[in-house]
Design a protein around this nucleic acid. Structure first.
Ligand SMILES: [Zn+2]
Ligand SMILES: [Zn+2]
Ligand SMILES: [Zn+2]
Ligand SMILES: [Zn+2]
Lengths: 167, 167
DNA sequence: TGGCATAATGTTATATCATCACAATTAACT
DNA sequence: AGTTAATTGTGATGATATAACATTATGCCA
């Protein structure tokens, strides 16, 4: 009975373990980098880890504010910026939103699967895809610094549940 | 003496021919679809075609307004939406901006190379990349509807001109 | 321990990007 | 011409993001 290779957010998994491991990892990494996971920052990460959905900055802010932190936009944006800069959170361009990074690997280029049925977001990766981007860059003599790859569609559960097609 | 395979926006090319051909193609396609390229819409496309840069909606609006069209945001957003819906313009997520589509092919999934040195944007494509995304979707049992692939970095000219690296 | 420099937080105000709602106009079709 | 649907225009508002600056907490060293 093989265990799944990755915690697939789209399907049932032990989410406490899933998010707990990520948080653990974050602590270790920041320690090594000499960066401080202050209360706001930690809480922000925890909030994002609660679900496999991307959250807007103002949604995060509302949560933080309700817990006694500052209530103005920079509070959320600064915490998010810190976490993004340290690779613990990714920005999902298509949603103007932020999602906790689930990969233990540092400095990776995430690929997002975004389900428009259930709004969940899965972070994956693909060496084939990286290679294809590398090839494209080479043939265009382009120096790659960052990549955004976001795939919008429906997860299998939403298809099974009868989510209607849309172009 | 072979002609270049694609007009590479990052390098010298006959841009009048480049943009003229695209506009021509747009007229034909819309005609076929029974859609109307009204003055605002046509002008919007022409403005985007003037350069190989992505423009924000408000930049487009300013141009339109100066030419006697309406001066309120919906004027620009509606024209852009129309053009995006008909595949004549793409939205560049990373820049919150819009770029004219340079591909004669309908319903394609563009890949953008975005140079942070000169702000030019090149639209390309790659069957390898499409295949990689297809594979990723299959192995995640995910139904793809739309994809966003944007590569941020430096074009060869900007590298040659000594644009500094940035992580 | 006190003093200093730096980082982090909080707040006000403002910038930027995008859509709603509704009236006026124009085009298409009978 | 009369009816309908599409298009355009405008004012108002919503949503996302940053600037500027005062205040507080932290780390370091004399
Ligand atoms: Zn990640
Ligand atoms: Zn789903
Ligand atoms: Zn050109
Ligand atoms: Zn360049």
């Amino acid at each position: 009975m093989p265990t799944p290779p990755d915690p697939d957010p789209f399907h049932d998994h032990d989410h406490d373990a899933c998010s707990g491991a990520v948080l653990e990892h974050a602590l270790t990494r920041l320690e090594a980098e000499g960066a401080r996971l202050t209360p706001v920052r930690r809480r922000t990460l925890e909030i994002l880890l609660e679900s496999h959905r991307a959250m807007g900055a103002y949604d995060v802010l509302q949560r933080l504010s309700a817990e006694g932190f500052g209530s103005q936009p920079p509070v959320a944006y600064r915490a998010l910026e810190f976490l993004v800069n340290h690779g613990l959170v990714h920005r999902v361009q298509r949603l103007n939103a932020y999602a906790a990074c689930l990969s233990p690997q540092k400095d990776h280029s995430p690929v997002f699967l975004i389900c428009r049925g259930c709004d969940k977001v899965a972070e994956t990766g693909s060496s084939d895809l990286r290679a294809a981007i590398g090839g494209l860059a080479t043939s265009n003599r382009f120096t790659v610094e960052r990549t955004t790859v976001e795939i919008l569609g429906l997860c299998s559960q939403c298809v099974a549940a009868g989510a209607e097609a849309r172009a």
